[in-house]
Write a protein that binds this DNA or RNA. Sequence first.
DNA 1: GGCGGTCATACCGCGAGGGTATCGCCCGTG
DNA 2: CACGGGCGATACCCTCGCGGTATGACCGCC
Lengths: 295, 295
Amino acid sequence: MTAGDDTVETRELAYFVAVAEELHFGRAARRLGIAQPPLSRAIQQLERRLGVRLLERDHRTVALTEAGETLLREGHAALAAVSAAVRRTRRAGRSEPSLVLAAKPGGDADLLPEILAAYAATPGALPVDIVFSALERGAMVRDGRADAALLHAPREDLTGLAVEELLVESQVAVLPRGHRLAGRAELSMADLDGEPLPRWPGAVPEGFSRIAESGQLMHLVALGRAVAVVPESIRANLRHDLVGVPVADAPPTTLVLAWPQDARSRALAAFVRAAAEVARRVSAGSEAARRSGRL
Amino acid sequence: MTAGDDTVETRELAYFVAVAEELHFGRAARRLGIAQPPLSRAIQQLERRLGVRLLERDHRTVALTEAGETLLREGHAALAAVSAAVRRTRRAGRSEPSLVLAAKPGGDADLLPEILAAYAATPGALPVDIVFSALERGAMVRDGRADAALLHAPREDLTGLAVEELLVESQVAVLPRGHRLAGRAELSMADLDGEPLPRWPGAVPEGFSRIAESGQLMHLVALGRAVAVVPESIRANLRHDLVGVPVADAPPTTLVLAWPQDARSRALAAFVRAAAEVARRVSAGSEAARRSGRL
DNA sequence: GGCGGTCATACCGCGAGGGTATCGCCCGTG
DNA sequence: CACGGGCGATACCCTCGCGGTATGACCGCC
């Protein structure tokens, strides 16, 4: 009995996700651009089809059941997979192909120009479009908006992505030039204990919505409203009113090149190879410089 | 222009996948249980909606374009994500919850009884259903048919799964007792060069469709039709007419417990902890035995 | 106790999806 | 070279299900 057609349409998933996120049929319906009654019906039908109660409604409030919570999580992932499929297909069909690389402004440790040059020198290289985003570069790769991204592990989540490690960096605290700790040769995290947040970029300081751009963060630091702990490579591009001081016990950060773990593109493979090659060359060079005492 | 409603229904994806796999509208339609004309229309509509040519048809044959190939790959993944969502939701809604563990017969290195006992002793432990499968345990975890599985790395693909390493094992060649190499204390892969396939379980020997069950494989070995290289733990349960001889240069195999990488279940976490604890205890014990010369 | 808010039900209209019949095209074949 | 068979596309029709409007049932709150 209850044959249970194992297939659910993406429309139904999107409807459920909307309701589960809003916990309110009317708002969800408005967000979806439909009326409320069809939405109620669709959810009931979905529950009947799955043979599972997804929402607990008591005429005043809507709450998720255990099953509803898993469908919210899993349904989100499934919808993401569908739109990733669509986006990647569209891109694969473009007559004039290119690679899209997501990078964070100032977050490339100055490797990007060399990587681009090395790849461009590859036979059959495609044009590379750089798209800048501070916060959702990983998501862009996962959902097909970008072919690859420069990410910082372990700060950013790498699940579901294939990665090539480019560079391991220690971290520095960014401080106003006049700060009491600015003159120190080295700090520990404990030294920063009393300092205003965000200690880590991406965290949310009091009264600010979100640090979406590194210039904003640096501005906050200059104002004494925040202290940032960031990879040492940004010292090269620091504003003149700021200084970077090594933090000895901050966990090292790894700059990685990430791409969808089952990508099959010839061009992407060549790009990854080129990036790895540049990283190898550069880190060997800086290693040599360090050994010869120039750093 | 080309507003491009970014959503595609799972039905459309399933239709395209069927055509892409069959490369034949008639067969695909039969497989889907619909007539051929609506299928043709659906594919055309999908192509129009994506703004991309997916199939190259020349009145005699159907071939995939570049975009079609990526939609085949990505669409498959997306459909799998959808049915995984459905299955996991159904399971989460069951009134009497349980854990489903996928194992391979003989592939648990005899850890399973202890793991089950350790987990059962956990407060709030759920009943554990063991489901045996030789070939698709990884897929069962990925698509929600199982909560966790015992897998052998690197022989089996672990992408998309979270894992806990339980046991590293060296490998042995399984040979008929009368085999010319059966008396040797140790072999190398080179010694097996002339031997009949499959060297590795899961490979397809001439004239046989698939080794789905280890009993079949052992039977083939006993008949001299094949030589198997497997983790050493199976030596304990070998038929009396077979012997296991260590293969010095075969890459070691790791028995891992794998689960969906974003699972949130309290019960699963407890099970993983219990398994890791047992593995730690057992490998410490066998280490001690080895040191004291009993092996 | 009326009022507003929320979800469910009743009912209707229309469009999309599916079916049958047929065409157009190409290829093999006698 | 004519003809038949196989394949995908087109034409046409019908039905079912999705979405809309109107309304009901049930609460909490002034």
